[in-house]
Design a protein around this nucleic acid. Structure first.
Lengths: 137, 137
DNA sequence: GTAGCTGCAAACTCTTTGCAACTCT
DNA sequence: AGAGTTGCAAAGAGTTTGCAGCTAC
């Protein structure tokens, strides 16, 4: 039983085959799959799984904070495991999503929230950019 | 003719009554209205306006970058004029949206993008927090 | 055994679109 | 005059839900 599965079980979720399949897919995903993506990958493992189950499972995982739901202005959501905290740079030309982390940024966000009288619970930063062509090294 | 209307006209948009109404509403909005909000307010000025026109106009304004479209994970979009650049802190308990700016943050984001080999075109930062009750002054 | 989970299909919400009539320039 | 815009209603996309049967615990 994986750590992820343990955390689900601890939250009172029954570990069904479908849920194991979806957790496996999320654990192996190097990208930020949409619901349709997760569904397609799940079907290659369990051909009988339904998209309703994928929606329900991802919502549950989101509530448990095991997963992060993104809205990259595409008309649908994308998901990823909530493992290591990071942010995203979206390539406006190719749609490619690049992950990054930055300690200073984290500290700064905490401070901004505190100065406004808030305890920071969650936050999102998305950068949208274009690749610089002429590499001025 | 307002500056906003001039910028629309310059982009080749015809200045119809409906568009003027919507621009007026956005200019006067102190919040971040949803499409339904804009539609409701528009109707109080022009009872014959349709929600299709509101959708179409907001999309156009978004393309022209006169407006910013937000997805605060509510299942619908919210809009605001793209005047002064700022970010948002969303109160998780009340849903209240607080705006803030931060120079250091801006500089840092430019740097992160550049270091990744990207020219920053746009970006979003959203903080989600809870009000700190015991004001430890 | 039973509370919870699943697949299916229908329903729902938000948004977009085809079309004929109308209007800004 | 003519290209662009509008309202209407229908269609589309993404997501949720009621229900009967099934399954993990």
């Amino acid at each position: 039983m994986t750590e992820l599965e343990q955390r689900c079980a601890k939250a009172g979720l029954k570990m069904t085959g479908q849920r194991r399949t979806i957790l496996k897919i999320l654990g192996e995903a190097a990208d930020h799959p949409s619901v349709e993506d997760v569904y397609a990958r799940a079907k290659s493992i369990d051909t009988t799984i339904s998209i309703a189950t994928v929606y329900r499972t991802l919502s549950l995982l989101d509530e448990l904070d095991l997963v992060i739901r993104h809205e990259f202005h595409e008309g649908h959501s994308r998901y990823e495991l909530n493992w290591d905290h990071h942010h995203h740079l979206i390539d406006l030309e190719s749609g490619q999503v690049i992950e990054f982390q930055n300690k200073e940024l984290e500290a700064m966000k905490e401070k901004i929230a505190r100065d406004l009288g808030y305890e920071l619970v969650d936050h999102r930063l998305e950068l949208y950019g274009k690749k610089i062509k002429g590499k001025k090294k």
